[in-house]
Amino acid sequence: MRFEYKIEGGDFTNAGLASSQIKKIMKQVGIEPQIIKRTVIALYEAEVNIVAHADKGSIKIDLEPDFIHMILEDEGPGIADIDLAMQKGYSTASPMVRQMGFGAGMGLPNIKDNTDELNVTSEVNKGTRVEMKVFLNK
């Protein structure tokens, strides 16, 4: 089952739309609650990353009986050093963003903790592509 969403950079108010939609669907098809939780936490973090850093982005989600595959692509500054960005606490967020409760430098590490497969590719000044997979069987 395919789901597609568009994201506007800077729109924190509406961040989380995709994750709350997917959460509802996953509950109705009977995925185990803890797996839903991991999936939506990772997806929400990835959504907020786009809102916080990029100009705009898109989400493509494939929900299959055995796994959920999520691809988030954005047009934005990109990540210069992905290994560094994967470290807990590393953040480039502005004080304003931090004040809103975002930008603690836990985004990518949190995504990694909550997904089974994570692939981040990026080109500076062009954009970032985050590909995540969560298996739905315990």
């Binding site: 089952m1 669907i25 509950k27 109705q28 098809v29 009977g30 995925i31 609650p33 929900l63 299959e64 009986p65 739905l136």
Partner: peptide, 21 residues
């Protein structure tokens, strides 16, 4: 938990969800 699911069989539930959409 007592989740309300479309079907107890996940494959069937997914089909039903697609149809609902």
């Amino acid at each position: 938990p007592r989740m309300i699911v479309l079907d107890n069989d996940r494959y069937v539930a997914m089909k039903k969800m697609e149809k609902t959409r």
